[in-house]
Amino acid sequence: METLFTQFAGMGLALLGAALAAGLAGIGSAKGVGIVGEAASGLVAEDPSKFGQTILLQALPGTQGLYGLLIAFLVLLKVGLIGGADVVVTPEVGAYIFCACIPIAIVGYFSAIAQGRAAAGGVNIIAKRPEELSKAMVYAAMVETYAVLALLVSFLTLNGIQL
């Protein structure tokens, strides 16, 4: 374990965290957006005028990927890869940063997929009652709450880590 730490070093851990945050949340969003896209294609094939409404729904599960990117970006800023701040990342700090990335990485992944499903269900609402778009959006937004909470925890943790 000791050798692993010294070899891997703090910077590596921090970057692994950033990679997971952007990567996992991004994969989740890709899946979620894909699910909505599939559902929406079926509807738009029947009625192309619904494109504008479905695109709104499809955008919703995309936010988790952005949250992941956001945390990854803040990590890169923190360790000085962007902005060029001169800092030394000790193994402990690296581990802390890694931990800070975990909530948005994991919750982002799963919530994006779940939100994709909810939004795909919302496509059915648009098919039958296009005027109720906002209700479909609120259903999907309920899922996103937890990604928002995870983002907050990741952000607050990252913000609290002293270099």
Partner: peptide
């Protein structure tokens, strides 16, 4: 992106 998010979460 932020407009959609903001509208949805404000609502």
């Amino acid at each position: 992106v932020s407009l959609i998010g903001t509208f949805v979460h404000t609502s």
